[in-house]
Design a binder for these strands. Structure first.
Ligand SMILES: [Mn+2]
Ligand SMILES: [Mn+2]
Ligand SMILES: [Mn+2]
Ligand SMILES: [Mn+2]
Lengths: 216, 216
DNA sequence: TAATATTTTTAGACTTGTCTAAAAATACAA
DNA sequence: TTGTATTTTTAGACAAGTCTAAAAATATTA
């Protein structure tokens, strides 16, 4: 239906739209590690196909049709990640690149059967919600640890940084999804956070606190 | 590692090599539903990369390197087909097109884990042997029904035509893999074959007998 | 063996998606 | 508000893969 490049652009625009309403050419170029001029070319094509709203120099947003395509790609990505972790026993830091390829397998019947095979999981291995076959899913209501108050208590439920380096660090510290933690102290000097977990104390940096999400 | 187009050409050349040692430009063009001139262009690239032996006007054969790539693609194709039928409960006539896309997912670690997950199956849903992770597999020793003698008895074990139409016809007649049949009579006039199966008689045309394989 | 038919290759063009360099538009700041 | 910095678009080129039309090589047949 859509080319690999088109799908990747739509996904990138969708992701950037979660932060700011309107997405700029340079933001898309950075997200896809390409050049602004290439982005402009593709934006004209996507606008032509009514997948984005685009006026020169004004940035873009997805149309309803474009958003539907993007959400479907995200559904595929997250279901394949779930499959790789739950069925093939890959670690959560190993699956993203494979899913980047698998998300472009076009059959929706396949993805719906995969969903059923796995029991309709609601979140992927990184805590991100998986859209259902109609594209419905709850927006993430998780909060970065850096944004909660001292004495707050919650369950580790997601990450904002999906890099291997970060995920491996978390695993090593035992900071995995499902763990209950309490924020004991926030150091004013460098915004480091001291957590209590399994009745032990653990200090994490501001960067880590920013990228680790909890459900209160 | 290799582009989608390169992989598809190598697979096509491999398939045609099973029939005749040397493969012609026109044969490849027919197999891939493309034009001879396009094939020539690609043959130069593949020869450049040492994946095929090619001299102008003389046809091509795979090098060892090329054969290794081709067998690996076939391994992926057949394992995904097995997955789709055994785990996602697709019918054997529904899986080929999906597998055509999935065979290009590049991770070998993924395919090895998929293989393990399914218990290292030896044949795909159409009876074709699945190469192991080193590329070893038994060449098909199956015979078309049209080539065996009257009173021969065997197990339906594979097909030569993988089209939906043929597979659906077989299913409807109950001619599925694993069934035991006996060749009762071969009609001299049109080479139709009368089979005995489940102690009932069943007539199939020469075309069907040509494309249905049994293990004696 | 010479003429003809078929196959294969070359030449040149097109599409998709990318790039660099330069021009145009917009944003920011004195 | 005018000049400068930044962002975005345009212009032109390139690589991969495909096509049509024509030329070259090979095969067939009289
Ligand atoms: Mn991912
Ligand atoms: Mn994920
Ligand atoms: Mn197949
Ligand atoms: Mn098959």
């Amino acid at each position: 239906m859509y080319t690999l490049a088109e799908e990747n652009y739509l996904k990138a625009i969708y992701k950037l739209s979660l932060i700011a309403e309107n997405v700029s050419t340079n933001q898309i170029a950075a997200e896809l590690a390409t050049k602004a001029s290439s982005v402009t070319d593709m934006l004209r094509k996507l606008a032509e196909k009514l997948l984005i709203n685009y006026t020169r120099y004004q940035g873009v947003s997805l149309t309803q049709a474009g958003e539907k395509v993007a959400v479907n790609i995200i559904r595929r990505h997250r279901l394949w990640e779930y499959f790789l972790v739950e069925k093939l026993h890959f670690k959560w830091d190993e699956v993203h690149e494979m899913a980047e390829e698998m998300e472009h397998i076009s059959s929706n019947e396949l993805i719906d059967r995969l969903d059923e095979f796995m029991g309709f999981p609601s979140r992927d291995p990184h805590g991100d919600p998986i859209p259902d076959s109609k594209g419905n899913f709850k927006k993430n209501d998780l909060k970065p640890i850096s944004s909660v108050d001292v004495n707050a208590c919650g369950i580790i439920s997601g990450v904002r940084d999906h890099s291997s380096a970060f995920l491996q660090y978390l695993e090593k510290q035992g900071l995995i999804i499902g763990k209950k933690i309490t924020v004991k102290e926030i150091i004013t000097y460098d915004s480091a956070v001291i957590l209590q977990m399994d009745s032990k104390d653990l200090q994490i940096s501001r960067d880590v606190a920013n990228n680790l999400l909890i459900a209160l």
